[in-house]
Design a protein around this nucleic acid. Sequence first.
DNA 1: CGGTCCCTTGATATTCATCAATATCAGTGG
DNA 2: CCACTGATATTGATGAATATCAAGGGACCG
Lengths: 251, 251
Amino acid sequence: MTGPDSRKVIDIALVKQVCSNCNLHQLCLPMGIDMEDVERLDTIVKRRRPLPRGGYVFHLGDEFIALYAIRSGSVKTYTITEDGSEQITGFHLPGEIIGLDAINTGRHPCGARALETTSICEMPFIRLEELATTVPGVGRQLLRVMSREINAENELLTLLGKKSAEERLAALLLSLSMRYKARGFSSREYHLSMSRHDIGNYLGLAVETVSRLFTRFQQQGLIHVRNKYIQLIEIEQLQQLAGMKNCTASS
Amino acid sequence: MTGPDSRKVIDIALVKQVCSNCNLHQLCLPMGIDMEDVERLDTIVKRRRPLPRGGYVFHLGDEFIALYAIRSGSVKTYTITEDGSEQITGFHLPGEIIGLDAINTGRHPCGARALETTSICEMPFIRLEELATTVPGVGRQLLRVMSREINAENELLTLLGKKSAEERLAALLLSLSMRYKARGFSSREYHLSMSRHDIGNYLGLAVETVSRLFTRFQQQGLIHVRNKYIQLIEIEQLQQLAGMKNCTASS
DNA sequence: CGGTCCCTTGATATTCATCAATATCAGTGG
DNA sequence: CCACTGATATTGATGAATATCAAGGGACCG
């Protein structure tokens, strides 16, 4: 740590530590904002030390101070029902912003925990609002991100309201696949950072059902799973499965 | 209509046609914005003629031009899945704002139809954004409204993911009750503007299940239903039912 | 190397959807 | 006012999807 090139190492680390150099530019808050303004955004973003698996980004009921962007790793957000059981409301990948649901009440109505070692960018909301008044693009983008969030939840609603267990799992696997792809990772294989339990919770299914579906999909040659590592073999068939169920012989 | 006091009648109608005099002030966009600024908001709000039952506020896929506030009546928003079936994503009462999910893509990812004769206020989004840059309160309130929407959807997610049919219906009835109350109507009795089919669709249940639950609740003396008119008799028991299921003899 | 959590698999139970028949309601026109 | 029509709602019988219960195997961690 004190060798001749330690300064250089630190420099590289620092360079990576700003929005303008972040490869998630196109997904995160800076999207559609020009360079000059991104630099102003940079001044208010704080980086926190990496969170271990299971660490809290924020707790349920915490006072709302900041929005959080995921830099690397993954996070689950969840609420707790009156009877004490947890409902996971989302799995979040790098470039996504969490905490938006706290703006309304000033307290976090959900909690957020890291599913693996995770780096977070903290954006104090007051500073962000200030910035929004001087930089119109920031306000606009903030609205867009929130709108996107509403869209995502609408999709999940449809999933939980109308779809079978099969369709739900296929949809989740494909959703993760597409989102990893958008982030420059493989869309054919990835690491499931969440437990089977979490998947079941999120999809409104029992753990056992999820487990059975994994084995069945594998037997059908659609996927290949080995613990947390998954390969999607027949993506098209999965899409069929996720989308339309009553299409065995018809249409 | 052409009697001596017709002018007065018209005047009253006109007076009611502005945000500053709207009794939904505390729920709608003007919430927390001071009088002066509300008047500026007034200048961009357009009132449309009342929509008949079944009329469209906007269609699925329509270009996004404006947000819409409900002035009176009620509206359902819905998406259509790939296989053509509809998923209702919300029932909306006076004071609520719809269309927020279109900001992201510039197109409405859901449709919106009146459940009964309904009056709507149209707020062109460009004008609203302009206003937000000059009046910070407007931008802040817009974010808050969106945040509230995300919260509402999170609750629905929990409902669809974890709760039994009984719990879901009880929760919906109570939600409507509370929302009517906040609008100055009775929380003990109200008019169900949506069909049983819509209720089932929204809650992820078959129509028949909804119907059976209504009769069962009635037999248990919890409610009294007659067609679309409903009275909540045992609100506390309904809350029990909506919240925690495994509490018959235990805890 | 032992403990604990996580995952898988099988047997059974339950909830709710589906199918089918009737009943009721809201219009429409005779 | 009444009969007629289609939409909407209720009710019963049956079945399928999925939860629950129970037990064993495997992975991860100190």
